[in-house]
Nucleic acid binder design. Structure first.
Lengths: 199, 199
DNA sequence: ACCTTTATCTTGACAATGTCAAGATGATGA
DNA sequence: TCATCATCTTGACATTGTCAAGATAAAGGT
């Protein structure tokens, strides 16, 4: 206990960021509640004042992860103008780029560590916002007659599936036989999106 | 120790199947080396005679998982005749159907638990065989002029990404807003494949 | 100002787990 | 037959998630 104050100030947030740091450094395997607590400078049971259990902390970290993904995508979209095709491509690229840049964090988001995620409403809310960002881009393309007027959920699911699958395989090293420079990946994403969007 | 023989016979395989059983019953969270050992009827350190550590057992389980996926897909393909389009659709359907039917096992395969999977050559071999099954179907479609003669890796990666992403989102409950009956899913898969293959 | 309440944090404990070390068991082959 | 070696067991240890009990301090009413 080398802290000046007995109380921390904003331990909840400190635990989330400490957790993310540990994840990005040591990967999923090196993650433990106690290490997170130590990194945040508190005792090993301090987190229980803010999180019901380890699952709750992981849920918070995942929520933060989806939040960052959302921010990245929406900020890219904000600088995109009204070109529907471009908006779709840039959103897709932002998704994959985020997965590569924040590999460990992204891995967590879809690792299945957190089963029964419906227990955490904020988490659900955040994932739905991310989905809505993609589906809005699709809707926009449909409105611009760039996509046929099929049910929006169909086209959106198709897009998200492609994107997510590509990102997953990429960070899992399962398509490492392809050259993995940034420009190459961007080209792949374009190649991935086009047939989905102009079918 | 209620076993008749001191030696087990084929403990290695017994551990793999016991591990898979535990996974399908209790999920990833309920999985532990000791439980697997107990389920196989041996002491908690017996597995170390056959696997270097927990990671090695998980690698073996994942290899077995990919093996079953391969078997499922190739047996479906065997009863498909020479219709290239049908072969592609059925292979894709087999992939997704496997993911849903063996949810927990499939989850493991892409959960990222096993980092540095390149340490396990048999595992790598098996994943490549699965990939080859898909890419062969694509190649067959190209030969039948159902697909344009683009580089095979491009088209294959696109297909695999869609498939894998769809399956991942499905078992993660991230597209649960869509009705998830078998027929619905099959329709979704078809919808998913068509634009990828006839672009 | 004082006391009570409540949120926050610590110390200490326990069971479960992964892993190592040392020894027991029995199959294999010289 | 006996030595060797793979296989399996018992026992131990550090790490981990979690609970219980208590310490600390901030907030608020009197």
């Amino acid at each position: 206990m080398d802290r000046d104050n007995y109380h921390h100030g904003d331990l909840k947030r400190a635990l989330i960021t400490a957790g993310i740091e540990i994840l990005t450094q040591s990967g999923v395997g090196g993650f433990s509640l106690r290490k997170v607590a130590i990194k945040a400078g508190v005792s090993h049971t301090a987190p229980y004042a803010h999180f019901k259990d380890k699952r709750a902390l992981i849920a918070a970290i995942m929520t933060e992860g989806f939040c960052r993904l959302y921010d990245r995508m929406s900020s890219v979209l904000a600088g995109c103008g009204a070109d529907a095709q471009k908006r779709l491509l840039e959103a897709a690229w932002a998704y994959v780029d985020f997965a590569v840049a924040e590999k460990e964090l992204f891995s967590i988001l879809f690792s299945g560590i957190l089963d029964n995620e419906q227990d955490f409403p904020e988490y659900n809310e955040m994932t739905h916002q991310c989905y809505r960002l993609l589906s809005d881009s699709v809707r926009f393309c449909q409105a611009a007659k760039l996509l046929p007027p099929e049910p929006i959920e169909l086209a959106s699911t198709r897009l998200w599936s492609c994107l997510h699958g590509f990102a997953s395989l990429l960070i899992n090293g399962q398509i490492s036989h392809l050259i993995l420079e940034k420009q190459t990946i961007r080209q792949l994403v374009k190649n991935l999106i086009v047939p989905v969007t102009v079918s």
